[in-house]
């Protein structure tokens, strides 16, 4: 059996990548799921995807639907938020 590197598998993994886009710390922000309405911190999302791959997918811990997709290329960062109704950020 072999093991790969371990890494965060929840929204805590998004802290660095989202800090490239936002001036504020976003893992503490409360997101509302567009599918089930669950509200909770970004840190609690379930995150999938190899960090060396093209991107990360975050799913709602309540209904498992995709709430956020983040793709980083050398030229651009793509953020797809269609699974979120809102993000409430502490100022």
């Amino acid at each position: 059996m072999t093991f790969a590197d371990t890494t965060f598998t929840d929204g805590n993994a998004l802290a660095g990548p989202l800090r490239e886009l936002f001036a504020l710390e976003m893992t503490s922000a409360d997101g509302r799921c567009a599918t089930c309405g669950r509200t909770g911190p970004v840190a609690d999302l379930r995150v999938y995807g190899h960090e060396n791959g093209p991107g990360l997918v975050a799913r709602c811990p309540g209904c498992e639907e995709i709430v956020l997709r983040l793709v980083v290329t050398p030229e651009r960062v793509w953020l797809d938020l269609r699974g979120l109704v809102s993000l409430a950020v502490i100022r």
Partner: peptide
């Protein structure tokens, strides 16, 4: 309860 999870990267 605040949580932080880790696991293999799968790569």
């Amino acid at each position: 309860i605040k949580t932080e999870r880790f696991g293999p990267t799968g790569g």
